[in-house]
Simulated scan of single mutants.
Amino acid sequence: MPRRLLAGIARFVAVMLAIGGAYVVAGWSLALIPRNAGWRPAGQGVTIWVEDNGVHTSLVLPKQAAGIDWRADFPARDLRDPRYGDHAYVAVGWGERHFYLGTPTWSDVRASTVLRAALGSDDTLLHVEHVARPTTGDDAREVTLSVTAYRRLAAAIRASRGTGGVIAGYDRYDVFYPAIGRYDALHTCNDWTSDTLARVGVRVGWWTPFAGGVMRWFPR
């Protein structure tokens, strides 16, 4: 292989590594800068959870609270097994269709899937799981919102819902729905979580492309 071609390939690889490194550094650094720095959890109101599966973050919400009833938005009949609709909570996340459907866990992540999503897509989904009350811990952090803030949160989530048919989930208790919004490297599934919380005044990081950047604002 000619030296000039080898040198070109080496430069390309070096540039890609530099871009990737800068992205990671920026993602973790900007996640340390707060939005809504003065926010404090409500003394009384509605308890929700911010949940992390290692790749995607989601918001876990009571099905019935503060006049909001998610059973109409996400009915049990949409599930592969409607009996899971008896659970009292829903976990809601947002993301790019192919990335979501192809990466339920870190072990499923593929470079081609990440690159495709990072370049940008308007094909996004809401992921909804019907779950029991979470156990607060490393993967689920408890947050108490005022009734007003919770109703605004519900409105923001509903505004992310698109139109179209139901898409089968990973298991019997979850399902996907078409969503609204563009996914790319600057606006990931984890940014959606932070942005949705920030809209109702919750303290979150300025830019949180990674799940850890979201969760750090909600200590155990």
Score class of each variant (00 low, 15 high):
residue 170 Y to W: 09
residue 167 I to W: 10
residue 32 L to E: 10
residue 39 W to P: 00
residue 7 A to T: 09
residue 23 Y to R: 05
residue 68 I to W: 10
residue 67 G to C: 09
residue 35 R to M: 12
residue 55 V to Y: 06
residue 5 L to C: 03
residue 19 I to E: 12
residue 192 W to I: 07
residue 194 S to C: 09
residue 17 L to E: 05
residue 80 R to W: 05
residue 193 T to N: 06
residue 154 A to R: 03
residue 214 V to I: 07
residue 96 E to G: 09
residue 50 V to L: 15
residue 142 E to F: 08
residue 54 G to L: 01
residue 79 L to G: 13
residue 150 Y to N: 05
residue 3 R to F: 05
residue 163 T to H: 09
residue 170 Y to G: 03
residue 161 R to C: 04
residue 119 L to E: 08
residue 198 A to W: 12
residue 87 H to F: 08
residue 108 D to K: 03
residue 140 A to T: 03
residue 162 G to T: 11
residue 124 T to H: 06
residue 80 R to E: 15
residue 55 V to L: 07
residue 130 H to Y: 13
residue 131 V to M: 07
residue 75 P to V: 14
residue 103 T to P: 08
residue 209 P to R: 10
residue 64 Q to V: 07
residue 5 L to F: 05
residue 162 G to K: 12
residue 123 D to M: 10
residue 173 Y to V: 09
residue 11 R to V: 15
residue 204 V to G: 01
residue 139 D to I: 07
residue 187 H to C: 00
residue 11 R to K: 08
residue 104 P to R: 00
residue 164 G to F: 10
residue 123 D to C: 12
residue 62 P to Q: 11
residue 219 P to V: 09
residue 200 V to Q: 13
residue 26 A to Q: 13
residue 166 V to I: 12
residue 75 P to S: 15
residue 29 S to T: 15
residue 121 S to F: 07
residue 10 A to K: 05
residue 9 I to C: 14
residue 209 P to A: 06
residue 105 T to D: 03
residue 184 D to M: 14
residue 142 E to V: 08
residue 7 A to S: 04
residue 97 R to W: 13
residue 115 L to Q: 01
residue 17 L to D: 12
residue 154 A to F: 06
residue 89 Y to P: 04
residue 209 P to W: 15
residue 47 T to W: 06
residue 26 A to N: 15
residue 209 P to D: 10
residue 188 T to F: 11
residue 39 W to V: 03
residue 138 D to I: 02
residue 165 G to M: 10
residue 153 L to P: 05
residue 74 F to L: 14
residue 66 A to K: 06
residue 120 G to A: 03
residue 105 T to F: 14
residue 83 R to M: 08
residue 215 M to P: 02
residue 38 G to E: 15
residue 207 W to S: 06
residue 143 V to K: 02
residue 120 G to L: 09
residue 100 Y to V: 01
